[in-house]
């Protein structure tokens, strides 16, 4: 059947709308990237669009020499690596029994866990609990209180439940216990889903903000997002020079742009890998019983 004129018009407008909207997803970042490589005068005179004007690396040189920013970068890399590893370990260990029919209290535990998605504890009792545990100004406060994400847990559990039963029947005949079934049979079969969930956790740790606001007061322990926030609020601190006394090849506008891009680059770098897996993972999690 040939498309009607109306359908053709719709198709044209649909493409146009989607392309323009998709461009707005990327353009703000490209704009800031262009800003970060532009001269301070060009940046402040609204000349920069998507391409640097009066190209200079001044802002980047200055930002990349900022020891505080690198320190926060290191802290975020640390909590991302350690946090993701611990989160994966404990999510897997929790998901496995919940996927086993012979685990008798399975449905009660699962109910109690899913219930926490609806009944969120208010902020203050959560804050007081973590503080009572002595985690104020400790990087553990950025890892332990969010160790298991319920959504991620459900993804892993759903995947485990879909694995064929015959697998562990034969393993049991060979004398495998549950730990060996999990680590030697299940895990090698679930590389893709593990990659997905690890990336979800890693992005979560990389972007962690609220918990840092609640629990980290010591500036030397600021993770990257908090450092970025403090520099965005007071860019003079980032500039660390008196702008009026001298001719610099950066200003607060270009510095802020460079810092935002600096904090985003790792996400952009893993994004191609990320998006290979996440759609599948996001769907697995939604198919709850």
């Amino acid at each position: 059947m040939k498309p009607t004129i109306g359908e053709k018009t719709f198709q044209a407008f649909n493409y146009l709308f989607l392309i323009v909207a998709a461009a707005t997803m990327l353009m703000p970042l490209l704009h800031l990237l262009a800003m970060s490589f532009s001269s301070p005068i060009a940046a402040d005179s609204k000349e920069v669009f998507l391409w640097p004007v009066e190209f200079t690396t001044g802002a980047w040189t200055h930002v990349l020499q900022n020891a505080g920013l690198w320190r926060s970068f290191g802290i975020t890399v640390y909590i991302t690596v350690v946090g993701t590893a611990l989160s994966m370990l404990f999510s897997i260990l929790t998901a496995y029994p919940l996927s086993r029919k012979e685990f008798l209290i399975r449905k009660y535990v699962m109910f109690a866990i899913v219930l926490t998605m609806i009944f969120n504890a208010p902020m203050i009792p959560f804050f007081l609990t973590v503080r009572e545990l002595g985690m104020m100004n400790s990087l553990w406060a950025l890892i332990i209180p969010g160790l298991i994400g319920t959504f991620n847990l459900v993804i892993i559990r759903t995947f485990f439940m879909g694995l064929p039963k015959e697998l562990d029947d034969s393993a049991r005949i060979d004398g495998c216990n549950d730990f060996r079934i999990l680590f030697q049979i299940y895990l090698p079969l679930s590389k893709a889903v593990m990659a997905t969930v690890s990336l979800f956790y890693a992005v979560g740790y990389w972007n962690t903000f609220q918990r840092a606001v609640l629990f980290i007061r010591d500036q030397d322990l600021y993770p990257l997002q908090m450092k970025l926030r403090s520099y965005l609020v007071s860019p003079e601190e980032l500039a660390a020079v008196n702008m009026f006394l001298g001719d610099y090849d950066f200003n607060t506008t270009t510095l802020k742009a460079a810092t935002i891009i600096f904090a985003t680059v790792p996400i952009i770098l893993v994004y191609p890998y990320l998006q290979k897996y996440f759609v599948k993972g996001a769907l697995l999690g939604s198919l709850k019983e």
């Binding site: 929790t94 109690a112 926490t116 208010p122 959560f126 007081l128 609990t129 298991i148 999990l182």
Partner: peptide, 23 residues
Amino acid sequence: MLYVMILPGILFYIIFKYIPLAG
């Protein structure tokens, strides 16, 4: 073994979800 495996997870949910809720 299943109970040993899930113990840390259950502790996590009690300490960081249910205790604050009760709090």
